[in-house]
Design a protein around this nucleic acid. Structure first.
Lengths: 234, 234
DNA sequence: CGAAAGGCAATTGCATACACTTTTTGCCTT
DNA sequence: AAGGCAAAAAGTGTATGCAATTGCCTTTCG
């Protein structure tokens, strides 16, 4: 019977299940609308149904899977409207964060933001998309933290994680890197001079542009049976 | 042991547990910081640990309880700062909803909002706090829906439910009913004439006032052992 | 006398077994 | 032949048992 867990890393079994299943959804290996059978998943990962069940519950709370009582779980289907709604929310949330950041950031926070932002300019010149993506995430996180509001932070991070699957390839568009940096520059400038309104507007515009850039990926066909079930990774 | 649900109402057992435990937290019967023992709760409600466990997971996602791996669950302790942060977020979210409502509500939605708002005026005159509370909830829900943005709606409802414990007694303050109605009136007026900026500002002010009115309840001493709540019955 | 290490009790995490709900399939009726 | 009903199969929901981790208490050594 149950032997050793696969060589997946740390955390409780449920955490591993959340990561494993979540990854497969985010990477598109599990298609939207696809049924998630508890027993199958449990067998696939060599665990019992219990942790799988709890993992599905968490993923449901994250919005990655949908659950109906007595009817099982499916990979969440994100409609065009819902996706637009999430990007819209993201724009509003980022605007709030930028506005608050402009008003509340400490001197140290402003300096760190500026320094990191300037440093990332080099990545644009080099066209280092991978590294820029990392700095991009860091940049936005700084904005969220700079708002000095724990709950706003939570809402924003939650929304961002929910949008992650659709933002993945936004930097593949040519010239997007430089444009992204310039948009960041507008935000930083506004924050440095404490102009909350301008910072908010700039952040909103920034996300709106990202939204449009990602819109092309919304055309992911849902409910495609897919040949196989579950492979290995992470 | 014997299966004999208490006389709590419908839904799956987990739903009942969520309601039961959530109610006890919201009503203050379970104090912030208090430990939530799975076995005790299961015995108290005459169910097995499994649904209790899942219920604690959901309540954790709602922010009502905090969970640490292998260390059990406790009633979430909300600090003064976090509470202020949540009210602040609520103000911003309601502002967004009101702004969008002013810009996007259909004619039917506007009419329904206006009618219901006017109807609630009578409740103010009568001083029917219970009934007004119901209409108040309804009013705000209309605003959330009127924004025509599913994700914004979700974020707002989530935040509101998380603030529920602290808003409970806001109408106990004398004269609060009439003031609340007047604030609603400003919002409705702005929405009716499609003035998004004004509606947003009015909604933000409204929540801010509620926040202040509720601030007094933030002084709930956490981690009071309490004689005990969960006794053995059966 | 204090501190650290080791053992013990309590509680959580996971596995397995059972019960109930939903869906499918095959047979019977019209 | 088509539709509906019923029984079985599949799958979720709940209960219970067992393993593993945590926190406390005792014991021992500096």
């Amino acid at each position: 019977m149950s032997g050793k867990r696969s060589l997946i890393r740390s955390g409780t079994t449920v955490d591993q299940m959340v990561r494993a299943i979540g990854d497969r959804i985010v990477t598109g290996f599990l298609r939207p609308g696809e049924k998630l059978d508890e027993a199958s998943l449990a067998a696939r990962f060599d665990v019992s149904r219990t942790p799988v069940r709890e993992a599905l519950g968490r993923l449901s709370a994250m919005g990655l899977v949908e659950r109906r009582p007595n009817r099982g779980a499916t990979v969440a289907v994100v409609t065009q409207e819902h996706l637009a709604s999430m990007f819209e929310s993201m724009a509003e949330l980022e605007a709030i964060c930028a506005r608050f950041s402009a008003e509340r950031m400490t001197t140290a926070e402003r300096r760190a933001l500026e320094i990191e932002h300037q440093a990332s300019a080099r990545l644009v010149q080099l066209g280092a998309e991978e590294d820029y993506e990392y700095f991009n995430t860091e940049f936005h996180t700084r904005l969220y933290r700079g708002a000095h509001s724990k709950h706003i932070y939570e809402l924003t991070v939650m929304t961002r994680s929910r949008l992650a699957p659709f933002r993945r390839a936004q930097f593949m568009l040519p010239g997007r890197l430089a444009k992204s940096w310039q948009e960041h520059d507008v935000i930083v400038t506004a924050i440095m001079r404490g102009d909350g309104a301008a910072a908010g507007q700039a952040a909103k515009d920034h996300v709106s542009i990202v939204s449009e850039a990602s819109a092309v990926f919304a055309a992911v066909d849902p409910m495609k049976p897919e040949t196989d079930s579950i492979g290995m990774s992470s």
